[in-house]
């Protein structure tokens, strides 16, 4: 049986894993390659790296870091944040990443999804999407797409954008709830279920994880194929093994 994936997200800034803390800016948590290697040994199913400054500073992703990760980690990992064009995608994949994630670039230029899928295969192209609740009737799903960490609305309905991205070649969607992100009170189950039911490609739920129960909820009620966590494990509150054994106890198929 296909297992439900536990994915750890590492936000990287200047080659340090970092975590935004309200009112306190960012704190550095460690070296991305060492942290990735440790999570790999702990049995995580997949890793995601976001270069959180590359996009803002309009510079390429730290390819040296991608190469170093690929030498230590023999599970799939994706890289995003700062992909500017097809050449950037190629470089990231050739450095050993399994997938490339595009978010604001895909909003500005949806053709990058099609071009990436044609050049490297759909399975390499992940649509990263930030969404938040909206009462505006022009968003029939009740959720709108935003970029720049939720600061900028783009005028798209979240479910409609997911369907469009699948049609033009996205192989997977990493769906982040801006409302839930950082709250640790659980994923946005309604958002996740709406998007997951609307598309035929896998959906990774992101934003809001605080306990293993939250993962179970989003993987069952929310119909997600994978659940992404960050601070739950970065601060040592839970280990990969503890989360997975809770999932297994609850009857979810997991790779132990």
């Amino acid at each position: 049986m296909l297992t439900k994936r536990l994915i750890i997200c590492l936000d990287v800034r200047n080659r340090k894993v970092t975590k935004g803390v309200k009112f306190a800016g960012n704190v550095d948590l460690g070296d991305p390659v060492q942290m990735a290697a440790q999570y790999y040994r702990d049995g995580v199913d997949e890793l995601v790296f976001y270069d959180i400054m590359a996009s803002a500073e309009n510079r390429p992703i730290d390819i040296g870091m991608v190469r170093d990760v690929a030498r230590e980690v023999f599970i799939p990992f994706s890289v995003g944040g700062g992909i500017r064009n097809l050449e950037d995608m190629r470089e990231v994949l050739l450095a050993g990443a399994e997938k490339v994630s595009v978010n604001s670039l895909a909003v500005r230029n949806p053709g990058i999804i099609r071009d990436g899928a044609r050049a490297f295969g759909n399975q390499c192209v992940v649509l990263g999407m930030d969404a938040r609740r909206s009462a505006d009737p022009k968003y029939p799903s009740g959720y709108e797409v935003v970029i720049q960490g939720g600061r900028t609305p783009v005028g798209k309905d979240a479910v409609a954008w997911a369907i469009e991205a699948e049609k033009i070649g996205a192989g997977e969607i990493c769906l982040n709830s801006i409302d839930a992100d950082g709250t640790k009170v659980g994923y946005d189950l309604e958002l996740t279920r709406k998007v997951s039911e609307a598309v035929g490609i896998p959906v990774i739920a992101s934003g809001g994880a605080g306990t293993p129960q939250h993962l179970m909820d989003v993987l069952t009620v929310g119909k997600a194929d994978a659940a992404l966590v960050a601070s739950m494990v970065h601060y040592g509150t839970y280990t990969v093994g503890a989360i997975k054994s809770e999932m297994a106890k609850a009857g979810l198929p997991v790779r132990i």
């Binding site: 049986m1 297992t3 599970i75 399975q123 035929g200 896998p202 194929d225 994978a226």
Partner: peptide, 30 residues
Amino acid sequence: VKIPHMGWNAVRFTRDHAVLQGLPTGSHFY
């Protein structure tokens, strides 16, 4: 049912082979 089949799934071994040495049946692969 999501297509592609993406993720970790179990492989039930049906026959012995040198390349499977040391791997238990039901091992997960990506």
